[in-house]
Amino acid sequence: MLLEVRDLRMYYEIEGKGWVKAVDGVSFTLDKEESLGIVGESGCGKSSLATTLIKVLPTNAKIFSGEILLDGVDILKMPENRLRREIRWQKIAMVFQGSMNALNPIIKVGDQIVEAILTHKRMSKRRAWKRAEKLLKMVGLDSSIAHRYPFELSGGQKQRAVIAMALALRPKVLIADEPTTALDVIVQAQILKLLKNLQREFGLSLIFISHDISAVSEVSDKVAVMYAGKIVELGSVEDIFLRPKHPYTKALLRAVPGIREEKKELKSIPGTPPNLLSPPSGCRFHPRCPYAFGRCREVEPKLVEAEPGHLVACHLLGGETA
């Protein structure tokens, strides 16, 4: 097992109001060269999970419990300095939403890649630049892009540059947080293809985070569905998309139009995602769930194996009611 996350809890403190339970008891595993997709509505904690995995958090965030085992070593127990030098980017790199502001607007693209290299490797600036140019070529960009500023590039070019930067140190795990959001469909497809190819080529383990279910289904082997800071269903792509078990997953799939399917009615999920300052008791989805019954309001369902490799957190599948 390359990466194992156990019972991870990360809350944000809001002064005078309490804690926002953005990541609340999340567990999953990731094998070498495996790709895990994480889907959920905005505000469900998926981006918070990503930044918790490399412990790059704002000052009001606190990790309350959990372990992040990378090759068996808990990186949460590492001193900050070691984590910074040995883990970040070196072992776990991130691709942020590059079309937005992931690159510093006033520093040349090449300089930003070189910065990533020289933070971890001892080499001459010239060699680092050569490497940056090579990385840019690898993601399908012209090496001259290195000498340009981010504001001179298109959204797709920026996203490719961000990916090139993430690969600079040949990390083991690549976390891609909404890498295709805010790009047009054609560019989205290109970026997804690029990510898939690079994953194969580099033997990367990929964590792909998106609210876009179809994008997740393209690149992932396994999918975790997140709701209100928790994973509610986890399984293979086929499990999740063809045999969903959790009412939330089912509702989420019904809310997405399929291009080859016949016209069907799109059903949005009634209600709004809960306020994570004071999430609902019991199952967090129960106020919006059409199948909710007494137990759902009182007892929080555990993530249990419904079928081999297919985990669901729902009382409907629990022993007593199934």
């Binding site: 970040r88 980017w89 942020f96 520093i107």
Partner: peptide, 27 residues
């Protein structure tokens, strides 16, 4: 400090002092 590229720089493992002088100050 809340900008995405600061988070990127932190994720890259750049230390806080360099983030201040190289990324924040110039902006």
């Amino acid at each position: 400090l809340g900008e995405d590229y600061i988070v990127t720089a932190r994720a890259k493992g750049v230390d806080e002092r360099k983030i201040m002088t190289k990324h924040v100050l110039r902006n």
